[in-house]
Protein backbone atom coordinates (compact mmCIF):
# COMPACT_ATOMS: atom_id res chain seq x y z
CA UNK A 1 0.00 0.00 0.00
CA UNK A 2 1.07 3.53 -0.61
CA UNK A 3 2.90 4.62 2.56
CA UNK A 4 0.91 7.86 2.83
CA UNK A 5 -2.35 6.00 2.36
CA UNK A 6 -1.18 3.40 4.85
CA UNK A 7 -0.42 6.11 7.34
CA UNK A 8 -3.82 7.71 6.82
CA UNK A 9 -5.46 4.35 7.14
CA UNK A 10 -3.75 3.72 10.43
CA UNK A 11 -5.01 7.02 11.71
CA UNK A 12 -8.48 5.92 10.67
CA UNK A 13 -8.87 8.95 8.51
CA UNK A 14 -9.81 6.96 5.46
CA UNK A 15 -13.24 5.51 5.11
CA UNK A 16 -13.40 2.41 2.94
CA UNK A 17 -16.49 0.93 1.43
CA UNK A 18 -15.78 -2.26 3.35
CA UNK A 19 -16.80 -0.43 6.50
CA UNK A 20 -20.20 0.34 5.10
CA UNK A 21 -21.75 -2.98 5.96
CA UNK A 22 -20.38 -3.05 9.48
CA UNK A 23 -21.60 0.42 10.25
CA UNK A 24 -24.94 0.02 8.57
CA UNK A 25 -27.32 -0.25 11.54
CA UNK A 26 -26.54 3.26 12.69
CA UNK A 27 -29.61 5.05 13.87
CA UNK A 28 -30.54 8.20 12.10
CA UNK A 29 -32.90 11.00 12.86
CA UNK A 30 -35.46 11.82 10.22
CA UNK A 31 -35.36 15.49 9.33
CA UNK A 32 -38.96 15.79 8.26
CA UNK A 33 -37.96 16.61 4.70
CA UNK A 34 -38.06 13.46 2.55
CA UNK A 35 -35.67 14.85 -0.03
CA UNK A 36 -33.13 15.75 2.64
CA UNK A 37 -33.50 12.35 4.33
CA UNK A 38 -32.88 10.74 0.97
CA UNK A 39 -29.65 12.61 0.43
CA UNK A 40 -28.51 11.99 3.99
CA UNK A 41 -29.20 8.22 3.75
CA UNK A 42 -31.91 8.30 6.35
CA UNK A 43 -31.42 11.53 8.16
CA UNK A 44 -29.16 13.24 10.63
CA UNK A 45 -26.76 11.18 12.73
CA UNK A 46 -27.98 10.60 16.30
CA UNK A 47 -25.21 12.69 17.79
CA UNK A 48 -22.08 14.47 16.78
CA UNK A 49 -20.83 17.72 15.43
CA UNK A 50 -22.80 19.35 12.67
CA UNK A 51 -21.36 22.13 10.58
CA UNK A 52 -23.79 24.55 8.98
CA UNK A 53 -22.20 26.89 6.50
CA UNK A 54 -24.60 29.66 5.54
CA UNK A 55 -25.08 33.38 5.45
CA UNK A 56 -26.51 34.71 8.69
CA UNK A 57 -30.28 34.85 8.53
CA UNK A 58 -31.39 32.37 5.91
CA UNK A 59 -33.27 30.08 8.27
CA UNK A 60 -30.38 27.90 9.33
CA UNK A 61 -31.36 27.79 13.02
CA UNK A 62 -35.03 27.22 12.18
CA UNK A 63 -34.03 24.25 10.07
CA UNK A 64 -31.98 22.81 12.92
CA UNK A 65 -34.71 23.44 15.46
CA UNK A 66 -37.32 21.77 13.30
CA UNK A 67 -35.09 18.70 13.07
CA UNK A 68 -34.45 18.78 16.80
CA UNK A 69 -38.17 18.91 17.44
CA UNK A 70 -38.48 15.51 15.77
CA UNK A 71 -35.74 14.28 18.03
CA UNK A 72 -37.49 15.64 21.10
CA UNK A 73 -40.76 14.00 20.26
CA UNK A 74 -39.08 10.65 20.09
CA UNK A 75 -37.24 10.98 23.39
CA UNK A 76 -39.36 13.22 25.59
CA UNK A 77 -36.40 14.55 27.49
CA UNK A 78 -35.67 17.53 29.65
CA UNK A 79 -32.30 18.11 28.11
CA UNK A 80 -30.76 21.54 27.78
CA UNK A 81 -30.27 23.78 24.78
CA UNK A 82 -27.10 25.78 25.09
CA UNK A 83 -26.33 28.84 23.00
CA UNK A 84 -22.75 29.98 23.34
CA UNK A 85 -21.81 33.45 22.14
CA UNK A 86 -24.57 34.15 19.63
CA UNK A 87 -23.52 37.03 17.34
CA UNK A 88 -26.42 39.18 18.57
CA UNK A 89 -29.00 39.04 21.34
CA UNK A 90 -31.17 35.96 21.33
CA UNK A 91 -34.86 36.67 21.17
CA UNK A 92 -36.87 34.78 23.77
CA UNK A 93 -40.11 35.13 21.86
CA UNK A 94 -38.63 33.36 18.84
CA UNK A 95 -37.43 30.46 20.98
CA UNK A 96 -40.75 30.04 22.74
CA UNK A 97 -42.51 30.11 19.38
CA UNK A 98 -40.26 27.26 18.30
CA UNK A 99 -41.18 25.11 21.27
CA UNK A 100 -38.00 25.52 23.23
CA UNK A 101 -38.91 25.82 26.90
CA UNK A 102 -36.92 28.69 28.32
CA UNK A 103 -36.10 26.78 31.50
CA UNK A 104 -34.18 24.36 29.33
CA UNK A 105 -32.22 27.11 27.72
CA UNK A 106 -28.78 28.29 28.77
CA UNK A 107 -27.11 31.32 27.34
CA UNK A 108 -23.35 31.45 27.78
CA UNK A 109 -21.27 34.52 27.08
CA UNK A 110 -17.55 34.11 26.97
CA UNK A 111 -14.56 36.39 26.57
CA UNK A 112 -12.53 34.43 24.07
CA UNK A 113 -12.93 31.65 21.55
CA UNK A 114 -10.92 29.30 23.81
CA UNK A 115 -13.46 29.81 26.57
CA UNK A 116 -16.25 29.34 24.07
CA UNK A 117 -14.83 26.04 22.87
CA UNK A 118 -14.13 24.91 26.40
CA UNK A 119 -17.74 25.61 27.39
CA UNK A 120 -19.01 23.87 24.27
CA UNK A 121 -16.94 20.81 25.04
CA UNK A 122 -18.09 20.73 28.65
CA UNK A 123 -21.72 21.08 27.63
CA UNK A 124 -21.45 18.51 24.89
CA UNK A 125 -19.85 15.81 26.98
CA UNK A 126 -21.93 16.41 30.09
CA UNK A 127 -24.78 14.37 28.71
CA UNK A 128 -27.22 16.99 29.93
CA UNK A 129 -27.64 18.82 26.66
CA UNK A 130 -29.77 18.24 23.63
CA UNK A 131 -27.89 20.64 21.43
CA UNK A 132 -25.05 23.12 21.76
CA UNK A 133 -24.95 26.02 19.31
CA UNK A 134 -21.70 27.82 18.68
CA UNK A 135 -20.91 30.61 16.28
CA UNK A 136 -17.27 30.56 15.26
CA UNK A 137 -15.52 31.94 12.18
CA UNK A 138 -13.06 29.06 11.94
CA UNK A 139 -12.06 25.97 13.87
CA UNK A 140 -8.93 23.90 13.79
CA UNK A 141 -8.78 20.18 13.18
CA UNK A 142 -7.97 19.37 16.79
CA UNK A 143 -10.74 21.62 18.12
CA UNK A 144 -13.34 19.99 15.90
CA UNK A 145 -12.10 16.55 16.87
CA UNK A 146 -12.43 17.39 20.56
CA UNK A 147 -15.95 18.70 20.10
CA UNK A 148 -16.96 15.74 17.96
CA UNK A 149 -15.75 13.31 20.60
CA UNK A 150 -17.46 15.30 23.33
CA UNK A 151 -20.73 15.35 21.39
CA UNK A 152 -20.62 11.62 20.75
CA UNK A 153 -19.80 10.98 24.39
CA UNK A 154 -22.63 13.15 25.66
CA UNK A 155 -25.02 12.02 22.92
CA UNK A 156 -25.88 15.49 21.81
CA UNK A 157 -25.54 17.73 18.79
CA UNK A 158 -22.83 20.28 18.71
CA UNK A 159 -23.91 22.68 16.01
CA UNK A 160 -21.32 24.94 14.52
CA UNK A 161 -22.97 27.92 12.87
CA UNK A 162 -20.47 29.06 10.33
CA UNK A 163 -21.59 32.40 8.92
CA UNK A 164 -18.73 33.41 6.68
CA UNK A 165 -17.73 37.00 6.83
CA UNK A 166 -20.94 38.08 8.45
CA UNK A 167 -19.78 37.81 12.01
CA UNK A 168 -16.94 40.22 11.77
CA UNK A 169 -19.31 43.16 11.94
CA UNK A 170 -17.58 44.65 8.95
CA UNK A 171 -20.32 43.54 6.64
CA UNK A 172 -22.79 45.51 8.66
CA UNK A 173 -20.81 48.63 8.02
CA UNK A 174 -20.16 48.11 4.34
CA UNK A 175 -22.70 46.88 1.83
CA UNK A 176 -21.76 43.56 0.32
CA UNK A 177 -21.78 44.83 -3.24
CA UNK A 178 -19.31 47.51 -2.53
CA UNK A 179 -16.68 45.09 -1.34
CA UNK A 180 -17.25 42.81 -4.28
CA UNK A 181 -16.67 45.61 -6.72
CA UNK A 182 -13.46 46.41 -4.99
CA UNK A 183 -12.24 42.89 -5.56
CA UNK A 184 -13.07 43.03 -9.21
CA UNK A 185 -11.14 46.22 -9.65
CA UNK A 186 -8.05 44.65 -8.16
CA UNK A 187 -7.62 41.53 -10.21
CA UNK A 188 -4.60 40.18 -8.37
CA UNK A 189 -6.15 40.37 -5.00
CA UNK A 190 -9.26 38.69 -6.31
CA UNK A 191 -7.17 35.74 -7.41
CA UNK A 192 -5.51 35.60 -4.01
CA UNK A 193 -8.87 35.52 -2.35
CA UNK A 194 -9.98 32.73 -4.60
CA UNK A 195 -7.07 30.44 -3.84
CA UNK A 196 -7.47 30.99 -0.12
CA UNK A 197 -11.14 30.20 -0.38
CA UNK A 198 -10.28 26.92 -2.12
CA UNK A 199 -7.80 26.19 0.64
CA UNK A 200 -10.49 26.96 3.14
CA UNK A 201 -12.87 24.59 1.43
CA UNK A 202 -10.28 21.86 1.52
CA UNK A 203 -9.45 22.50 5.15
CA UNK A 204 -13.16 22.35 5.95
CA UNK A 205 -13.65 19.05 4.17
CA UNK A 206 -10.79 17.56 6.15
CA UNK A 207 -12.36 18.36 9.48
CA UNK A 208 -13.63 15.31 11.41
CA UNK A 209 -17.26 16.41 11.40
CA UNK A 210 -20.26 14.14 11.61
CA UNK A 211 -22.10 16.18 9.05
CA UNK A 212 -21.38 19.30 7.10
CA UNK A 213 -24.05 21.20 5.21
CA UNK A 214 -23.91 24.33 3.13
CA UNK A 215 -27.14 26.28 3.08
CA UNK A 216 -28.05 28.97 0.64
CA UNK A 217 -31.32 30.75 -0.05
CA UNK A 218 -32.68 30.55 -3.53
CA UNK A 219 -35.80 32.68 -3.71
CA UNK A 220 -38.31 30.78 -1.63
CA UNK A 221 -36.36 27.64 -1.28
CA UNK A 222 -33.44 26.58 0.80
CA UNK A 223 -30.66 25.04 -1.21
CA UNK A 224 -28.78 22.45 0.82
CA UNK A 225 -25.50 20.91 -0.24
CA UNK A 226 -24.13 18.03 1.77
CA UNK A 227 -20.40 18.71 1.94
CA UNK A 228 -19.64 15.76 4.12
CA UNK A 229 -21.38 12.92 5.86
CA UNK A 230 -19.99 9.88 7.53
CA UNK A 231 -21.53 7.23 5.36
CA UNK A 232 -22.91 7.68 1.90
CA UNK A 233 -22.01 8.94 -1.51
CA UNK A 234 -21.66 12.48 -2.67
CA UNK A 235 -25.06 13.85 -3.66
CA UNK A 236 -26.37 16.69 -5.68
CA UNK A 237 -27.67 19.75 -3.84
CA UNK A 238 -31.37 19.61 -2.98
CA UNK A 239 -33.98 22.23 -2.30
CA UNK A 240 -36.44 22.31 0.58
CA UNK A 241 -39.09 24.92 1.33
CA UNK A 242 -37.90 27.97 3.21
CA UNK A 243 -38.59 27.63 6.92
CA UNK A 244 -39.99 31.15 7.20
CA UNK A 245 -43.62 32.03 7.67
CA UNK A 246 -43.38 35.12 5.51
CA UNK A 247 -42.08 34.67 2.04
CA UNK A 248 -41.67 36.85 -0.95
CA UNK A 249 -44.37 35.41 -3.17
CA UNK A 250 -47.24 35.92 -0.80
CA UNK A 251 -46.90 39.49 0.10
CA UNK A 252 -46.24 42.89 -1.24
CA UNK A 253 -42.94 43.38 -2.95
CA UNK A 254 -41.11 46.58 -2.74
CA UNK A 255 -37.77 47.51 -4.05
CA UNK A 256 -35.89 49.58 -1.58
CA UNK A 257 -32.79 51.43 -2.58
CA UNK A 258 -30.65 52.75 0.07
CA UNK A 259 -27.58 54.90 0.22
CA UNK A 260 -25.15 55.62 2.99
CA UNK A 261 -26.50 59.01 4.05
CA UNK A 262 -29.21 57.35 6.12
CA UNK A 263 -32.08 58.60 4.00
CA UNK A 264 -34.43 56.71 1.81
CA UNK A 265 -34.21 57.72 -1.80
CA UNK A 266 -36.94 55.79 -3.45
CA UNK A 267 -39.24 52.90 -2.86
CA UNK A 268 -40.24 51.18 -6.06
CA UNK A 269 -43.41 49.23 -5.94
CA UNK A 270 -43.03 45.82 -7.39
CA UNK A 271 -45.45 44.72 -10.03
CA UNK A 272 -46.71 41.86 -7.90
CA UNK A 273 -48.42 44.23 -5.54
CA UNK A 274 -50.29 45.83 -8.43
CA UNK A 275 -51.47 42.46 -9.50
CA UNK A 276 -53.02 41.84 -6.11
Amino acid sequence: MNPILHDLHNKQWVWTAAHAKQQQPKQTLATGFPSLDNVLTGGFPRAGMIHLNSPLGCGEVRLMLSVLRNCKQSKQTQKLFVFIDPPFELNAEFLVAHNIPLEQLILVNTQSSEECLWSAEQCAKSGACEAVFIWQPSLKHIQVKKLEHAALQGECYCIWMHNEGLLSGQSLQKPEKYTRKKYVSRGKKCQGELTTSIDKQQALSNLPLSLSLSIKRELDELNITVNKQKIGWAQKPINIPLPFINRTNRLLKRQLKYSSNNKVLSIKRASSEHNR
Partner: peptide, 26 residues
Amino acid sequence: SPVFHDRPGLLLNRPTPLQLEVELIK
Protein backbone atom coordinates in the same frame (compact mmCIF):
# COMPACT_ATOMS: atom_id res chain seq x y z
CA SER B 1 -47.52 33.87 27.05
CA PRO B 2 -46.10 35.01 23.75
CA VAL B 3 -48.35 35.92 20.89
CA PHE B 4 -46.17 34.09 18.37
CA HIS B 5 -45.64 36.83 15.87
CA ASP B 6 -43.13 36.01 13.24
CA ARG B 7 -40.14 37.36 15.08
CA PRO B 8 -36.43 37.22 14.32
CA GLY B 9 -34.19 34.94 16.34
CA LEU B 10 -31.39 37.41 16.74
CA LEU B 11 -31.87 41.03 17.69
CA LEU B 12 -29.22 43.68 17.48
CA ASN B 13 -28.49 45.18 20.85
CA ARG B 14 -28.58 48.62 19.28
CA PRO B 15 -30.26 48.93 15.89
CA THR B 16 -27.88 50.14 13.21
CA PRO B 17 -28.73 52.30 10.20
CA LEU B 18 -29.79 50.05 7.36
CA GLN B 19 -27.02 49.58 4.84
CA LEU B 20 -28.14 46.46 2.99
CA GLU B 21 -30.01 46.39 -0.24
CA VAL B 22 -33.30 44.84 0.74
CA GLU B 23 -36.65 43.86 -0.67
CA LEU B 24 -39.66 44.20 1.63
CA ILE B 25 -41.70 41.08 2.23
CA LYS B 26 -44.20 42.04 4.86
